[in-house]
């Protein structure tokens, strides 16, 4: 029987913008620029993250962004900011520089673990939303914080799976699943992904997408890992939609029990 082709209407929509790929990817820490470009291409991502940084006063030559900007949609971040004030100014500078009102809002509350400062995050989200921004906050895996961020107008919430760059995967899958079940806005798993199965798990738990960087950039073969992440996110999403069987504490035979030889 020939396979039936069905148009896939399962696109991700954030603030009215539709994405075919549910994988967002960062652009930092690759062995070189070509590997970064190849990896982003292989990931299938449509949205890539960039940082906003002071220029060298020696002059501003061509940057990576000149290469990226024409091919992918850029999502600037406020990485490294420790206060709502600095993050808000960084977001405003990003809007001026890139002509986008989308911002990955990141406010670090602890330099060692890079855990976000929830109090500053909620306050900055409120301010930026009032200023016309589409805010995607990187946050803790706390369902209450996620609810408050959505209430403050965040277009999506982006809880960490584990600390940034740690590669530990999802340390608290129960919380991630709970956030996904309750969130009125898309949930993007951000930070901590180590390998493809982590990304698949995030999607199986109900995340609308995955944002990652180090897992690809620092892999032995970033291009190949980017492809693995693309496939993992797609597989995890398909499994979520298909609906997994419940876990049981005992066996259940898959073959018929009637008509056994010798019975």
């Amino acid at each position: 029987m020939p396979a039936k082709t069905i148009a896939d209407p399962d696109s991700l929509v954030i603030a009215g913008q539709s994405f075919t790929s549910r994988l967002f990817i960062g652009t930092s820490g690759y062995p070189n620029q070509q590997i970064m470009l190849d990896s982003v291409e292989a990931s299938g991502a449509e949205l890539v993250t960039v940082a906003i940084r002071r220029i060298s006063l020696d002059g501003a030559g061509e940057s990576l962004i000149d290469v990226l900007g024409g091919r992918w949609r850029l999502l600037p971040n406020t990485a490294g900011c420790a206060t709502a004030r600095d993050a808000i100014l960084t977001a405003q500078l990003a809007r001026e520089a890139l002509g986008t009102s989308w911002i990955k809002l990141e406010i670090i509350g602890d330099r060692e673990t890079l855990h976000p400062d929830s109090e500053q995050l909620i306050a900055a989200t409120e301010t930026l939303v009032r200023d016309g921004f589409t805010v995607l906050p990187y946050c803790g895996d706390d369902p209450v914080v996620c609810r408050k961020l959505a209430g403050a107008g965040a277009a999506a919430v982006m809880p960490l799976g584990s600390p940034i760059g740690s590669g530990m995967g999802l340390c608290n899958p129960y919380n991630i699943e709970l956030i996904c079940r309750r969130s009125p806005v898309p949930v993007i798993l951000d930070a901590g992904i180590g390998t493809a199965s982590d990304a698949a798990l995030a999607m199986e738990l109900g995340c609308a997408g995955v944002l990652l960087n180090s897992a690809v950039a620092k892999a032995l073969d970033p291009r190949r890992m980017a492809g693995a992440m693309r496939d993992a996110v797609a597989a995890g999403r398909a499994a979520f939609l298909a609906g997994r069987i419940p876990k049981r504490g005992y066996a259940e035979p898959s073959s018929p029990q009637l008509g056994l030889v010798g019975s």
């Binding site: 962004i65 971040n77 520089a97």
Partner: peptide
């Protein structure tokens, strides 16, 4: 402050 985008995560 004079800034521009750079690679980031």
């Amino acid at each position: 402050e004079i800034v521009r985008p750079r690679e980031g995560g």
